[in-house]
Structure formats: structure tokens, C-alpha cells
Design a protein around this nucleic acid. Sequence first.
DNA 1: ATAAAAATCAAACAAATGTTTGATTGAATT
DNA 2: AATTCAATCAAACATTTGTTTGATTTTTAT
Lengths: 210, 210
Amino acid sequence: MATKEEHILLHAEQIIATQGYNGTSVRDIAAKAKVNISMISYYFGSKEKLMEALFKWRMDSGIHFAQEILENPDYSEVEKIELILYNYVNRVKKLKNFYLIMQTQQVISQNKIINDLLKNYRLRYIQLLQLLIESGQEKGIFKNNPNLFFIHTTLTGTLFNAINGMQLYKDFADDEVSKLSEAKFKDYYFENLFIHLKSLLKNLLGYENK
Amino acid sequence: MATKEEHILLHAEQIIATQGYNGTSVRDIAAKAKVNISMISYYFGSKEKLMEALFKWRMDSGIHFAQEILENPDYSEVEKIELILYNYVNRVKKLKNFYLIMQTQQVISQNKIINDLLKNYRLRYIQLLQLLIESGQEKGIFKNNPNLFFIHTTLTGTLFNAINGMQLYKDFADDEVSKLSEAKFKDYYFENLFIHLKSLLKNLLGYENK
DNA sequence: ATAAAAATCAAACAAATGTTTGATTGAATT
DNA sequence: AATTCAATCAAACATTTGTTTGATTTTTAT
């Protein structure tokens, strides 16, 4: 994708994340990206197609990493699932704004293309988990047989919900933590989030620490 | 609250849940509720104040039940926390549409009153969990000391995310389940969701089955 | 039955919306 | 240097938006 389109998408993402798709006008986007209003139609065709372009752009690179980990024979099942989880957490941390948009679009999107992208994203992630968990169960590494679908619901739900909760977490943290810089606090927050999610997985699947 | 206002709120809730606040016009609401457009201003003052009224209306009855359970000396900590969880799950099941709205507003709301309501709702729930967990830890019923904030994030996140996943779950379920009626399937889904959440809590807090 | 109050209505309002137009500028190609 | 193509712009467009108006109907109270 050309650099000008990315420039617009980048700014659109920021503003749509905080105001929502319907709460953001093409004039808002144009102003934020410092381009003429007509450039949105010029580059994307319409506001709706800009949104579709944003989703295609951001979701493209999504599953590849996890797929590679899954096929790598050098890792154990425990290592694989924790690596995939770690990657997921870091992706959400890095693409915070996009995952906020995903969260709202999952509820209210009427756009078929976006709905299909969202559905496929979920399906692939669940199937990936399924392969990994079944493999671990066969080898006796995972002792439990939990509900696959709800595991995914919990991982994704916790991650999504955690993005909204960052500010509130600061109020709960002790003085040391709340004095951290914005970036340092973000690191701290997502590190603890990862630890929490790891412990969830460990209990759900029933495996021992390495 | 008078019955006519409730009538409007009820229909507004339905349509805002599927289209979002900004994606729903007062004409949409008026049409759905079969009232004249000007009735929205007449009864609520404005579209925004209608939204505030919806939040006040639905969130009012929220925490009372949990508070009563907490103060009841007849229950053990394990019973208390599972009762509160059960009540929470059923509330989400019953007020599905409102919790969908909550989910999106948590991300994009610019309304101070709604933001404050949402924040207080979270805070009270976390504090309630804190009291319960500390009490259980003192008595040695809860063996672990997990991150309180992230427990709440997981419970709420799982529940919220589960609302969106209901349809997808049907695709994963076996024939028997997918043949169920809409209402029966909803019962089945939320029952399994409750079991899943209970198992999460049990592992996180570290207690044994009754 | 009459007066007062509450509820409903179609119509109008200004403002904001997404998109298109047609002219103008800039860069690349011949 | 002339021509072609891509990019940018201010202005205009038809709709849709939330809200208000002022008249009319319905309900309530006297």
C-alpha cells in the first residue's frame, strides 16, 4: 500500500478509536491527517471503504506468526501456547487503537466485509488453539479438557477489556507504579496482564511449569 | 419512572444495541417505539439525555443483590462468590442488549455522566470482590493471592465477549445443540458460560469444590 | 360541563453529513 | 518544451441530523 493511504489510515485509526466510526466524520479524519476532505473519496472511494481498508490492512499480518510457531517442531506445546499468547498480548499492546475499533465493530458493524473478516479472524484463532490443545492432550502435557470456545472467549475478552481498564488500574496501583511514565506503565501493565493470562491458561489446560 | 418513558427506553435500547448510539437517529428510535419524533425531546430533553436516562435506569438495580449476598452470614465465601457470579451471568443474559451498549460506550463514550456511571460500576464491583476475597483468604478458604484487578477484567471481559460469540458458538456445537430453539440455546450457552467462569474463579482463587 | 394540563402531531429549522465537481497545481513522460 | 497523468483544492450537492415550533388532541381536575 502506498504511503499516503497509510498516512490517512493511521490518523483515521486514532480518531475512530476514540470517537467510534459513526462518531467520526470524514472532515474529522481529513483534519487529523491534514489532507483535503475529497482525498478520502479519492484514495478509498468512500468512508465505508476506508474502514474496510483499515481492517484489511491491520488484520493481514495477524495470524502468520502464530501459524509459524505452531508448525515449528523445536517447541513443546507449553512453549508454543505461551509464545502465541505472548505475541497476541504484544500485538494488542502495539495496535491498541485498532483493537479498540475491533471491539466496537464486533458489536455494531453492519458491513459484510468487516463482519466476515472478524468472523474469520476468530475462527482461525480458535482452530489454531484447537490443534495445539489436542496435540498437547495426546502427549499428556495438558491434563484437562476445557471448553475450547470459552477459552478463546476468555483470552480475547480479557485482552480487549484490559485495554479499557488501563487508566483505572493506575488508581489501584501503589505509589511506585502510578509514578511511572506513560510508556513504562504500559510495559508494566501488559507484562502483568501476560502473567495473568498465562496463569489462566495453565489452570484451564492443566499443565505444570517448565 | 413512568411507563411511557420506559417504553421508549426499551425500544431505544434494542436499536442502539445493534446500531450503536451514533448510528441510531432519534427518528430510528421514534419509529421503533412508534411515537412522534418530538416525544424524545419532550420526555428526555435530548438524544444524549435519553442515553443517560437509559444508563441510570439499567445500572440502578445492579449491585444491590451482590451487596446483600456479601453481608449475609449464612453463606460461606465460596458460596457467596459463586452466587454473585451466577447473578452477574444472569443479569448479562437478561440485559444482553444493554451490556452490548455498555461494551461500546466503555470504549467511545464522551459523555461525562455515562463515563462516571461506568467507572463507579467497575469500582464498586472490584471493591466488592476485594472484600470477599480478603475475607476468604483470612479464613484460609482461598489459597491463592491473584491480581484482583485482572480477575475482574477476566470475568467482565469474558462475559462481555461471550455475548458477541453466541452465534459463532452454534457453528461449533454438535447437531443436538444447534437444533435447540433460540431460548433453549441461550439457556444452554449461559449455563456453560457460568460453569467456565466458575472454574476460572476456582483456579484463580485456589479453593476446593464444596 | 368547563377549564387546565399533559400529550401528540406535522412541519420547519439550522447544522452537519458523505460525496462529487471542476478548476488548478505538481510531477513524470515524451 | 509540450503533454500527459496524478494529486490537491475550495465550493457546492443533496440527505440526514437533532431540535423546536405552534397547533391540536387527549386526559385530568374542578
